[in-house]
């Protein structure tokens, strides 16, 4: 990855809603060049998607999330990959990560109710052949997601005019 690509990624990771023109200005590049780099990053699968970070609680959207710790018996040929990929396919599953420590996979599951999430784990995850054990941890409150703190710090305390 060259420095121009890195600069564009840095800008987009901070704010993905900027226009190509604005990005071009910030990075001191031609707009066409920015367009080209971004579509290259997209087609290579380096930029996967552009999404908003939403505070669901504030939006009044009731959701339930749980982090599921899963102990796996890896398969001889594919290790952890095949089961991780299978679990990833469910739309209820928000993230699937292989981790070190007591458990092997850390899976974030999203549902409308606790019952729905528990049911999903019992029905879809636990019965998988390679799954030896699961622990379901329901999330109680989010303080920070995707590097963004939910309760923004005191803003507007600066004086409007200072020298």
């Amino acid at each position: 990855m060259d420095s121009k690509e890195k600069e564009i990624i840095g800008i987009l990771e901070e704010n993905a809603r900027l226009s190509d023109k604005e990005i071009a200005r910030m990075a001191e590049m031609a707009e066409e060049e920015v367009k080209g780099i971004i579509s290259k990053l997209e087609s290579k699968g380096i930029i996967i998607k552009y999404k908003a970070v939403i505070n669901h609680e504030k939006a009044g959207i009731d959701t339930v999330q749980a982090l599921i710790d899963i102990k796996i018996s890896p398969e001889r040929s594919t290790g952890y990959d095949s089961v991780a990929v299978r679990i990833s396919k469910y739309p209820e599953v928000q993230s699937v990560r292989l981790v070190s420590g007591e458990y092997d996979l850390s899976v974030l599951v999203l549902g409308k109710t606790m019952h729905e999430v528990a049911y999903f784990v019992a029905e879809k995850i636990a019965p998988l052949e390679q799954v030896r054990n699961t622990v379901t941890n329901f999330l109680l409150k989010s303080y920070k997601e995707y590097g963004e703190i939910y309760e923004a710090e005191a803003k507007g305390k600066r004086l409007a005019v200072s020298l």
């Binding site: 004086l159 005019v161 200072s162």
Partner: peptide, 9 residues
């Protein structure tokens, strides 16, 4: 609704 570009900090 003021936007301040008058800040020195």
């Amino acid at each position: 609704g003021v936007i301040s570009l008058g800040v020195g900090e």
